[in-house]
């Protein structure tokens, strides 16, 4: 459900005009929801957002331009088969604002927090056809660890992308929320992909 047309003029902005905020509470929730709604047709229920932003508020960021929310990243982290890993669930930047490094900045902030929180690695899935996202994550050091056959219901495969942090002294992960454990290859819940109709998948 992309409401913007392809040829909408790009906005002329300077990097310094973009403000980045960490998720700050319930008042940010509709902003995130509207943004994702606008760029992806997949209807996430409010509970999907809540799951992430309530449990890991420190991992979600919003980008603003002149008071308007124009980009967001939503993540989680937890124990997964013996490793403590971060997971990037949604990443969106409004069309006219793309190509200016905003997504890179958003996702970098989340990854930094994950690293500081003791994550050993970060993962996500992206459609094999989502060139933009693949390039973006590739530059951040993610590798394509696996290909997931027909991961999306439209029959498109996904890559599981992974970023491994350099090994460091093990730290106790004290108050980290570690909720579910998707032990199954096909169990991750949120996807992000170019084809917005297939972003959620819960096979």
């Amino acid at each position: 459900m992309e409401t913007r047309s392809e040829n909408e003029p790009e906005v002329d902005i300077k990097a310094s005009e973009i403000k980045y905020l960490s998720y700050g509470g319930e008042h940010h929730l509709p902003l995130i929801m509207n943004l994702v709604d606008e760029e992806l047709s997949e209807p996430y229920s409010i509970f999907t957002y809540r799951y992430f932003v309530y449990l890991w508020p420190q991992l979600s960021f919003l980008a603003f331009h002149n008071g308007k929310c124009i980009g967001t990243v939503v993540c989680k982290m937890g124990e997964h088969r013996g490793t403590f890993r971060g997971y990037i669930a949604m990443l969106v930047v409004l069309k006219p604002y793309r190509g200016k490094g905003i997504a890179t900045e958003l996702v970098t902030r989340s990854i930094k927090v994950m690293m500081e929180s003791g994550c050993e690695e970060v993962t996500l899935e992206a459609e094999v056809t989502n060139k933009g996202a693949l390039a973006l994550y590739g530059r951040l050091g993610f590798i394509r660890a696996k290909r997931l056959f027909r991961y999306y219901l439209n029959g498109v495969d996904a890559f599981r992308l992974k970023l491994l942090f350099p090994r460091r002294e093990p730290e106790p992960f004290d108050s980290m929320a570690s909720v579910d454990d998707e032990s199954h290859e096909y169990n991750e819940h949120i996807h992000c992909g170019e084809n917005p109709s297939c972003c959620q998948h819960s096979m």
Partner: peptide
Amino acid sequence: VSTGPFNTEHERFVQH
């Protein structure tokens, strides 16, 4: 050259 802000070629080698 494969570089990134968070890790090095070493990590990517280990992962692959």
